[in-house]
Design a protein around this nucleic acid. Structure first.
Lengths: 292, 292
DNA sequence: CAGTGGTCTAGACCACTCA
DNA sequence: GAGTGGTCTAGACCACTGG
């Protein structure tokens, strides 16, 4: 579905899997995780008693301080779902802030999906669904949360000339030297995914040890690369003999595949990934936010 | 992948300068479509000659008019990738707008990934990658572009008591009446996907004809439902005999699966979808934007 | 150093919702 | 009609970037 999404034509709305004739629409997706399970407590319909306050001596922007406090209050259940926040002018006065500053704070939470604004009505805390993790199949995170940190086995880390496919993805010339990294991702001691990545040979020299201990993206950021966007394609196919062997699945078993090209903010492709996951153990979960 | 990207976020919050071990992390993804293919033309390094202007008699907000003009200029190549926009103060003066209004316009394009701001440097047009559709596997769109509009065959549209699974997803009681809709999505006359949806029985009465002609979401919107967010899970599995028959695949063929629960802005679950796609003919594509 | 975006203020008027 | 968010203005100071 998303498939149809990206490719420019009205094609298919990912939410409906239906053809969508409207002109240009945007869907904002949020992937969120790591939230503590909320402990919802009954709260007043109005958030009058909430303790809020900003520290003007802090280097943290005022709007950001306020946003953090509100987010934390929502997360902790001190602001129950459906609670009206109270109008922006009062809030600003109570905090000694200007209205635009308060609006900026609120807007950032609206963008995260935690608050909903309605003209003529007010600003409400969204009814909880946004932050609760899914129950199903959050295997990776479940394992991590259970103290079973996923492990990485580096299978390859070499420089080689770019194939046509890699050259096209990275926007370099065929035959240019690129770094090829192959890893096996394990959890609970069992293989979960086979990850193959290609990077422009230039700036980064990565030791196997680093790759084992840290994520690729963290390494890239440390090298001063500003990630900006990525294009992804998720599909499925049957495992061939080699893949099956690698992942501990029989040949013919369904695999989840993901291809991705990542760009920095200058538009350069900084990474091309081609990954396969054991479908029996892995699925992708995410949350979509509909932007009006 | 979402995992890699996400875990890649810096440990230090640039705003607070403090190490951020906390709980909540977000990745903003944008799925965008409806863009025309850009026809990039060489352009000056500075966007001095760009024709911009707002109509104050229009009901369209000024910042929105400006944003649209900028977006259109980027899309049409009048603002080439890498172009500096010129500082906000000048831009505001040239347009007879205040700086906050200009900032609001620019910010909306930054949120879409079309512009990048750097303090001390300026605002630049992103290097094109954001809006170009992927080359690979754009099967659905290719078909549509070829005039083969995807078709829908309604296989079922009935009221029935909710099973435990459906009840949990929709947040209703087991046995409550829900609407069950089954559709086959075809393209080029061939089956592409089997879509099963469950909706709370309440407000919507849908005729088969509507389901065939319009998207589920469009119907829901027409019924006054404001979509707010959705949780999705994408995986893969092997087709059983029935599924294979339905989709024209042999039993055991890999299928791409998607489960989704959609919520309105009051937090009610308004739809539960459980879809399977022929992996041989379908993949999901989307674009991620990394929010700093 | 000059130039940029990031933040903030204290007002103002409007459009919309709901009783 | 009262209350809300949506938009807009004309300033201000700061932090960061680059030469």
């Amino acid at each position: 579905m998303v498939h149809n999404l990206t490719s420019a034509r009205p094609a298919v709305n990912p939410l409906s899997g239906q053809s969508n004739l409207t002109t240009s629409r945007h869907l904002l997706l949020i992937v969120s995780w790591g939230y503590a399970r909320p402990v919802p407590k009954p709260a007043a319909d109005r958030a009058l008693s909430l303790q809020l306050g900003v520290d003007r001596s802090s280097p943290v922007p005022l709007y950001f301080q306020l946003a953090q406090q509100l987010e934390s209050a929502i997360e902790k259940g001190r602001l129950a779902p459906g609670t009206l926040l109270g109008n922006e002018i009062d809030l600003a006065q109570r905090l000694g802030l200007s209205r635009p500053t308060v609006r900026q704070a609120i807007q950032s939470l609206v963008d995260k999906g935690l608050l909903v604004r309605r003209r003529g009505v007010g600003t409400q805390v969204v009814h909880s669904q946004v932050k609760r993790p899914l129950e199903l199949s959050s295997l990776y995170d479940d394992l991590e949360a259970a103290g079973q940190r996923p492990a990485t086995r580096v299978l390859g880390n070499t420089l080689e000339p770019a194939t046509a496919e890699v050259a096209a993805a990275l926007g370099v010339a065929e035959g240019d030297e690129v770094r090829r990294i192959e890893r096996l991702r394990l959890a609970h001691g069992e293989p979960m995914a086979y990850l193959r990545n290609h990077l422009p040979a230039g700036p980064l020299a990565m030791a196997d040890a680093e790759l084992q201990a840290t994520g690729l993206y963290r390494l890239m950021r440390s090298a001063g690369i500003t990630l900006h966007s990525a294009r992804q394609s998720v599909g499925a196919r049957a495992a061939d003999a080699v893949e099956g062997e690698r992942l501990g699945e029989p040949a013919g078993a369904p695999l989840l595949t993901m291809e991705r090209v990542t760009f920095d903010d200058t538009g350069r492709a900084v990474e091309f990934g081609s990954h396969v996951y054991r479908a029996s153990r892995y699925s992708f979960e995410f949350q979509l936010l509909v932007r009006p």
